[in-house]
Design a protein around this nucleic acid. Structure first.
Lengths: 245, 245
DNA sequence: GCAAAAGTGTTAAGCTTACACCCATGA
DNA sequence: TCATGGGTGTAAGCTTAACACTTTTGC
């Protein structure tokens, strides 16, 4: 037992984990095994330990409950309504996280766990105030995307421009013109454009010399130049944001 | 004494209160009366009660320590380094606040209290990790100002365009062209432009008919149409932000 | 009288938007 | 062969940025 001179609240972290499956954005939920809200879907999260920061706690819980590592994680709000948890006074530090398409596939295929992706417009009933947490997470994600190109983090290292556009459209709930989107993204200067490598036929990679004979069209994939971006965005000159659609 | 089955951290709120004195931006600090860090300057704040949200706690502490009410307050980050407080494990929910010029004067004139404004580039040594909290508050304030016209909250209800520009320049650390600033602000549609009322001579208000005789030039003051702004900014059509300099 | 504050327009450059066709691929 | 995906350019409108002079007021 732990005793204190003054009452202390319990502190948890909860994470809203976004994943992109190629056509829609999904949120990872866990089915609760214990009361309260037993067998109800909830955000992954749990109690903070005394020897870790909230960031470390969120990462630990994520790893324990869903096996996700190396995820982009950012705290966005503290939820502290007095009776949000029926057991005792609990405040939660809420995070949002973006997992890459690769990791998305891994989690989606893991039948053993109680974790499951839900399309973010068709969520089941949720425990506690987790619905509210999710709506704020969506809002914060939108705001963040206007200010930082985090959409990349929902994709593989190399991605097609079309996928990137889809993510922007889903998050901002708005359609963009394909050509304009492409032009603006390329103009940003932080995308590395490559000819698509894997022109394969029946799973065999072709030698370069044969490529032109087989496919006359060149397809492109992009990757994001994190370093160049990080350097530029810390400079004083940086003001206008080229990814603000 | 209060006992729990598992250890709980203590939770505090701390507020970075910004005020504008007409030429620079200031932060309100409190001289600590107790150990640790006795007689060191610190952010106003204190322990969360069990019957209040963090927002309510921050407001309460503000009122208790500085007599400020009706202030714009927004939580922006949780600081949770394990040893940030030497007494015990304490995490703090940090807020930033903007006080109007009116309230600024009130606080500045209050000699009795231990509260004092410091120009935000010339702060004294601070207790705990409060320097770090303040730098993040400045960053968040900048970001917020790109997305919402909160600069108004540092001014009186009616203000001159020049004051508004000064605030933008101080927060973004950048100079703007006076004419361009004016044009863009007026184009936003959320400023109400009025001829300056108080053409006074020796403290006497003049009847309208005499105004032209006394001053041939018309001076303007502005106020912010919060309602129109709130309505517009919740609509789906709202995307581009006209206050993003 | 002089310095500082505040009102006022124009132009060029850049960016955003809207819009259509072709070819290649795979079903 | 037909539908889909993905490559590509241009013109009009709008926004931004750069730039200077005048009047008034207070010192």
């Amino acid at each position: 037992m732990y005793t204190y001179k003054y009452p202390h609240p319990a502190v948890t972290t909860d994470s809203v984990i976004f994943g992109f499956d190629g056509s829609s954005i999904n949120i990872l939920l866990i089915e609760r095994g214990l009361e309260p809200y037993k067998e109800t879907w909830a955000l992954p999260g749990g109690f903070l330990r005394m020897d870790e920061t909230v960031e470390e706690g969120a990462i630990r819980e994520l790893c324990e409950e869903t096996n996700i590592k190396d995820v982009y994680l950012e705290q966005f709000h503290v939820f502290s309504e007095v009776n949000r948890d029926p057991r005792e006074r609990v405040l939660t530090v809420a995070f949002f996280a973006l997992v890459s398409k690769n990791d998305f596939r891994v989690i989606a295929g893991d039948d053993a766990s109680k974790a499951q992706w839900y399309e973010w417009n068709h969520l089941p009933p949720l425990a506690f105030d987790h619905s509210e947490i999710i709506s704020m997470a969506r809002k914060k994600l939108q705001e963040k995307l206007r200010v930082s190109p985090i959409a990349f983090k929902l994709l593989d290292n190399e991605f097609k421009m079309d996928e990137l556009q889809q993510i922007y459209e889903l998050i901002h709930e708005k359609k963009y013109d394909r050509r304009n989107f492409l032009r603006k993204m390329e103009a940003s200067g932080y995308l590395i454009k490559k000819e698509q490598e894997d022109n394969r036929i029946c799973g065999m990679k072709l030698p370069d010399v044969m490529k032109d004979a087989v496919s006359t069209r060149t397809l492109y994939v992009y990757s994001f130049d994190e370093e160049a971006f990080a350097k530029a965005s810390t400079s004083k000159e940086w003001r206008k944001y080229p990814f603000d659609f």
